[in-house]
Amino acid sequence: MGVPVGIDVQRLVAFSSDPRGGNPAGVVLDPAGSSDSDMLRIAADVGYSETAFVFNRGNREYDIRYFSPKAEVPFCGHATIATAVALAERDGTGQIELRTQAGLVTVDTQVDDSGRHTATLTSVATSIAAAEPGAVDEALAALRWTAADLDPDLPPRVAYGGAHHLVLGLSTRDTLAALSYDFDRLAKLMSEQDWTTLQLIWRAGPDVFHARNPFPPGGVVEDPATGAAAAAFGGYLKHLGLITAPATFRIHQGDDLGRPSILDVGVSAPDDRIRVTGTATRIEP
């Protein structure tokens, strides 16, 4: 049916200054009374992993909802970065407050030395939980991996930073690069476990990681940049004592898809909220 008349969908890529990289997001700054079914239909028509719908509360405060082509999700990091940049371009830089289904997320926007708008989101409080061994085994089977492919220094956990993500650390970069999984089998498991994406990680150095994020619950094979998972992973490292706060680290994502993305993550002490920074740029029509 297409996008309804009067609805302006802005298209940006987040976590890249190159529209050929990053993760595309739709942003609707004036949903004009759109219903849930309207927003889901618009997100499906846009076809990106998420489209954000922003409802102005006044005084730089907004309600925000995120829809994938198949379902609403409680929080989406890359669409938050894209939304914040769109608002900064329209209204000027500064701090905004976004009321998500997961809770309050603040975003600080600024212009960097290159003249690009950047945004730093501060997540809701992060947490981790043990991953059920049977669920981990099923995830590995769907991914066509075995326990021998995992990095023992990055144990499987379910990490939360606004949405739930199973974190699996891998022992080699080659294993991550060769990802090829059973979409339907993994989709079924993730629906049962309420996992939004998988955070598949390889540690390149003390403060550099490479990630891939399957997203079958949203009808998307893979996200090229996942801010929500980056925030959750920051909490994972902190809660497991694998990083000493205050600290920053970088995640490279999307390289294996030909859409390179850079996510800079900040971990504070004693705050369990995590900061994720990136830029966004518009996709030309």
Rank of each mutant, 00 (worst) to 15 (best):
A130S: 06
P69C: 05
I274N: 10
R173L: 13
F55H: 08
P285A: 12
H164V: 00
P31Q: 10
G134Y: 09
V267M: 10
S34Q: 12
D18G: 04
V107R: 01
D151E: 11
N56S: 03
L40A: 15
S123N: 09
S268C: 01
P24E: 06
A187T: 09
T197W: 06
D36E: 15
V220D: 07
P224V: 06
P155I: 02
G22S: 01
V54T: 04
R65S: 06
R60F: 01
V27F: 02
A269Y: 13
E132R: 11
G33Q: 14
W195E: 07
D137F: 14
T277R: 13
D182C: 05
A148D: 15
T106K: 13
P156V: 02
S114Y: 07
E138P: 01
L87G: 09
A141L: 15
G218L: 11
L140E: 09
T120M: 05
Y66C: 02
G218C: 11
D112N: 14
G115H: 10
G169H: 09
A102K: 05
A228G: 15
A84V: 11
A71K: 12
I283W: 06
S35G: 08
A163V: 10
V267Y: 14
N213E: 08
E222H: 02
F215A: 14
T100D: 09
P206S: 14
G227C: 07
K238F: 02
F67L: 08
E132Y: 01
E138T: 11
T106I: 03
G103E: 11
H210P: 00
P133S: 05
D112H: 06
S191M: 11
P224W: 03
A119V: 02
Q95K: 10
G258W: 04
L176K: 09
L263D: 11
A141Y: 10
I274Y: 07
D153Y: 00
L29K: 13
